[in-house]
Design a protein around this nucleic acid. Structure first.
Length: 463
RNA sequence: UCCCCGAUAGCUCAAUGGUAGAGCAACCGGCUGUUAACCGGUUUGUUGUAGGUUCGAGUCCUACUCGGGGAGCCA
């Protein structure tokens, strides 16, 4: 007798096999005929397998009739073609063993739907729900595709450090990493003496692996990072986390146009794989979460991404006839309302905006010949907004040092980074993709806290 | 961090300043294959916390906590 997954047991090919199944009870329905239907789920797929538990089972009255949502069971029996609608197969149990009971009075999950807000308070149990099972499988699939995509194209996966001493990477507030006793820190001249700290200097959790991975791009050619990223911003929105996962490819000899080509192919591949391999989960999202999701994904997969310069975008916004809460003028940063208008209303398509004013973007982005703009790009998608941010990097030593001073940074603090320009500098480009924003886009889920297993946000590090 | 809204049974929600309720869940019973099964019955409360106004507060006021939506920061 083989132990098989619920996913396999639901396939018509399984009919006739004697099998063992193990998982958790979703619901039990007692039939008029003196037997019970038990919906069994083991997480292998969205759907449950219907176990038919005959009244003749020796533990029928004592155990089966008291099975509740959440209990774990092991079933032995034969897979049969199901005579009723709703499923191709069912399992006629010859043995049903209770592995672990779930006290029905106390177990918080019921067979009815729960609000996502409530489920967030039981994040350790919510993967047992339809929605969070689907999110977990989709997130896995996206992660797998990301590694496949880069591997197929000759990229190398580089593990950049989680702890960094660069305290001014320009990507948001940092979490400090320290072993100093906060109640009695060592002091020098009235201030905390970080030379006595673990690393002999202030250290932080990374906000980006980009600067480090540039060093590997300028050696291995095409590389990417994929790891956790930390931002200590006090952001309270459905699109921000204090701890999230980011993918950052970096390519030597790529200009901005190559970079945009890669970003577009990359997103399309993630979407295509999700549609191909997570069909049952996406169907669930379409039924319960976002009716438009599959059509929107197919649209982004099939339509070319429009490429619009910042200057053109400002022109379109200014001539739109809309009244904006934030004024549109060349040199002002584009606000959410502007980005949303462009991708959701004006173009109704994914859009790549590029060539932003130099004053709006960090020092490492390459200055254009016009002197006013830099080779930045943002990929905007309907529903989520900015999903990718990237740029061609400034490869000219003198210009890069000038940009650092322009933004009040001391070039000496980036000496190792500048070495990449001193010795064998090359044009290169890269971008960052937020994994959770990608899963938001793929699933149609509304809140980023519901697409990461255990969300960390201001005031919340539960579980 | 700013603006707006909210917090009542295990869950989702009702309740003109005047005796806190329903549906679901759970429990008991019924029902010849059910599909969030169905039908009948039973149980369930420090109305987020702390103050205040009032003869009387779930309801009005203040502060705080937590949650949601929007904005900023960004991925």
């Amino acid at each position: 007798m083989d132990t098989i997954s619920v996913a396999d047991a639901r396939k018509a090919e399984a009919v006739g096999k004697a099998v063992r199944l193990r998982g958790w009870v979703r619901t039990r329905r007692d039939s008029k005929g003196g037997f019970s239907f038990v919906e069994l789920n083991d997480g292998s797929c969205q759907g449950n397998v219907q176990v038919v538990a005959p009244g003749e089972l020796p533990n029928y009255e004592a155990v089966v009739k008291h099975l509740h949502t959440g209990a774990s069971i092991a079933v032995e029996g034969e897979v049969k073609a199901s005579p009723a609608k709703g499923q191709a197969t069912e399992v006629l149990a010859s043995k049903l063993e209770l592995v672990g009971d779930a006290d029905a009075e106390a177990y918080p999950l019921q067979k009815k739907g729960h609000s996502f807000e409530f489920l967030r308070t039981i994040a350790h149990l919510r993967p047992r729900t339809n929605t969070f099972g689907a999110v977990a499988r989709l997130r896995h699939r996206a992660s797998k595709t990301i590694h496949d995509f880069f591997d197929e194209r000759g990229f190398f996966y580089v593990h950049t450090p989680v702890i960094t001493a660069s305290d001014c990477e320009g990507a948001g507030a940092l979490f400090r990493v320290s072993t100093i006793d906060p109640d009695s820190p060592p002091k020098a001249e009235g201030k905390v003496d970080y030379t006595k700290d673990f690393f002999g200097r202030p250290a932080y959790l990374t906000v980006s692996g980009q600067l480090q991975v540039e060093g590997f791009a300028c050696a291995l050619g095409k590389v990417y990072t994929f790891g956790p990223t930390f931002r200590a911003e006090n952001s309270n929105t459905p699109r921000h986390l204090a701890e999230f996962w980011m993918i950052e490819p970096e390519m030597a000899f790529y200009d901005l146009s190559d970079n945009m080509d890669l970003a577009e192919a990359f997103l399309k591949r993630i979407i295509a794989d999700s549609l191909d391999k997570c069909g049952e989960d996406l169907k669930f999202f379409a039924e319960r979460v976002d009716k438009e999701i599959i059509g929107r994904l197919e649209g982004v997969r099939d339509k070319p991404f429009l490429r619009v310069s910042y200057t053109e975008a400002v022109d379109i916004l200014a001539k739109s006839g809309k009244t904006w809460e934030f004024p549109v003028a060349w040199g002002n940063d584009l606000q959410s309302e502007h980005e949303r208008f462009l991708t959701e209303q004006h173009f109704k398509s994914p859009v790549i905006l590029y060539d932003y004013p130099r004053t709006l973007k960090p020092f490492y982005m390459r200055v254009n010949d016009d002197g006013r703009t830099v080779r930045a790009m943002d990929v905007l998608v309907p529903g989520v907004g900015e999903i990718i941010g990237g740029s061609q990097r400034e490869e000219r030593l003198d210009v890069l040092e000038g940009r650092m001073r322009e933004q009040g940074l001391d070039p000496h603090a980036y000496d190792w980074y500048l070495d990449l320009r001193r010795y064998g500098t090359v044009p290169h480009s890269g971008f960052g993709l937020g994994l959770e924003r990608t899963v938001l886009f793929l699933s149609g889920m509304a809140n980023i806290r519901d697409v990461i297993p255990f969300p960390r946000t201001p005031g919340n590090a539960e579980f």
